[in-house]
């Protein structure tokens, strides 16, 4: 199954790059249904790792949170497994002083598997590597995310405002944005 395969590929990322993996493996085996409730209770930012989610509740199968420097590796995994890019977006977690960049991937064939890859960066210095080298179609999505959240995509070929006016220096989807 593609879900298992991709999950295993993701899991390989974590022990290798993070020497002291906190209880990441546990949530993996956790009953999926509790995930939704658990997320509510959890105050701490999520640890990096991959979780298998209940599709019926969340609408996606795998949820991988990676460190920004692992991003390229993670994206390569989904690229090699022939996923297509659905979208890139951000979420501003102002209370935790972080911005989450969310990458959505899905598949064209009937082995349905939606993968969410997230990475968190500090609000003061939001820099993540670009994935346009892997997915050419990420170009606009990254520009849009740059527009709305001010995230700098390192190495992006053309990071100028896309949806906002070309002289826009504000980022409207940040929670502290006041029009």
């Amino acid at each position: 199954m593609i879900i298992e395969k991709t999950k295993l590929a993701f899991q390989d990322l974590f022990p290798a790059t993070e020497p002291e993996p906190p209880p990441i493996e546990e949530p993996d085996e956790e009953v999926e249904e509790e995930k939704g409730k658990k997320a509510k209770v959890k105050k701490e930012p999520r640890q990096n790792g991959v979780i298998e989610c209940n599709y019926a509740v969340h609408g996606y199968h795998l949820d991988a949170q990676v460190a920004p420097d692992q991003l390229i590796e993670a994206i390569t995994i989904v690229d090699e497994a022939e996923f297509f890019i659905e979208s890139i977006t951000g979420v501003d977690w102002i209370k935790e002083d972080q911005i989450e960049v969310v990458y959505d991937f899905s598949r064209y064939d009937f082995q349905t598997c939606r993968v969410v890859i997230r990475t968190r960066v500090d609000r003061d210095n939001p820099v993540v590597p670009t994935i346009t080298t892997i997915y050419a179609g990420a170009n606009w999505h990254e520009r849009e995310t740059h527009d709305f959240f001010g995230i700098k995509f390192d190495g992006h070929p053309h990071l100028i405002p896309l949806l906002l006016p070309e002289d826009a220096d504000f980022h409207p989807l940040l929670k502290d944005f006041k029009a």
Partner: peptide, 24 residues
């Protein structure tokens, strides 16, 4: 409830997705 939800539908123009992040 707080959480992350995604739904894709096939509209006339293709796969339309809504990602909803709720904080309750």
């Amino acid at each position: 409830p707080a959480g992350d939800y995604y739904q894709a539908v096939e509209t006339a123009r293709g796969s339309f997705g809504v990602r909803l992040v709720s904080d309750g």
